[in-house]
């Protein structure tokens, strides 16, 4: 499974943008933006959907970098909190790269990004035994176009809760 988001693509992007841009603001509010409130309302607490919509399942990276950004840290702190609250979930961190790199290098770069997220979550008390990493390199973009608006969404690490957990 490469993704657990099964909304139409437009709303997926909305969810991503919310996760990327809106979380700092969201963190101090009980509810997210109105657009996602109805979706959030439908998500059972502790469910995979709850995680995606109310926590944010992904962090983004600068070009050619695997450093966790300040925004990424906020997302991962929320992820760590949620994963601590709902300890039944095992999960996989998927690392991705944008297409502006060669295939082999991007596989390793995606792995580096996944590892960075794994290390960060471990530093926040998540047991390594719950975590697995995988890299998809540039093989699974979420946004397809030839400019920065897409590339920046594709440089990501996604925390995917295992279906069985």
């Amino acid at each position: 499974m490469t993704t657990v988001i099964r909304f139409a693509r437009g709303s997926t992007i909305a969810a991503i943008l919310m996760a990327a841009l809106g979380l700092a603001a969201c963190a101090s509010k009980p509810e997210g933006p109105a657009a996602s409130a109805s979706v959030a309302g439908a998500a059972a607490r502790g469910s995979a959907q709850d995680f995606v919509v109310n926590v944010g399942d992904r962090v983004f990276f600068e070009t050619d970098s695997s450093e966790i950004t300040a925004q990424g840290r906020e997302t991962l702190d929320k992820q760590a909190q949620w994963l601590t609250n709902y300890g039944q979930h095992a999960f996989t961190v998927e690392g991705h790269a944008d297409e502006r790199g060669t295939r082999e290098y991007n596989l390793a770069l995606g792995a580096r990004r996944a590892q960075a997220v794994r290390d960060y979550l471990a530093s926040r008390g998540i047991a390594p035994t719950r975590m697995r990493t995988i890299s998809f390199g540039k093989e699974r973009p979420v946004a397809v176009c030839n400019d920065i608006s897409c590339w920046s969404q594709n440089r990501r690490a996604v925390t995917v809760l295992n279906a069985s957990s």
Binding site: S66, E104, L107, A108, A111, R112, Q115, A116, I134, S135
Partner: peptide, 25 residues
């Protein structure tokens, strides 16, 4: 861990490749 980017040796006896180890390959 993930192995990738394989290629044969010229005599066909070996495969050379990358192994991902944490953040390094």
């Amino acid at each position: 861990g993930m192995t990738f980017s394989p290629r044969f040796s010229p005599d066909g006896q070996r495969v050379i490749m990358s192994l991902q180890q944490g953040g390094n390959a």
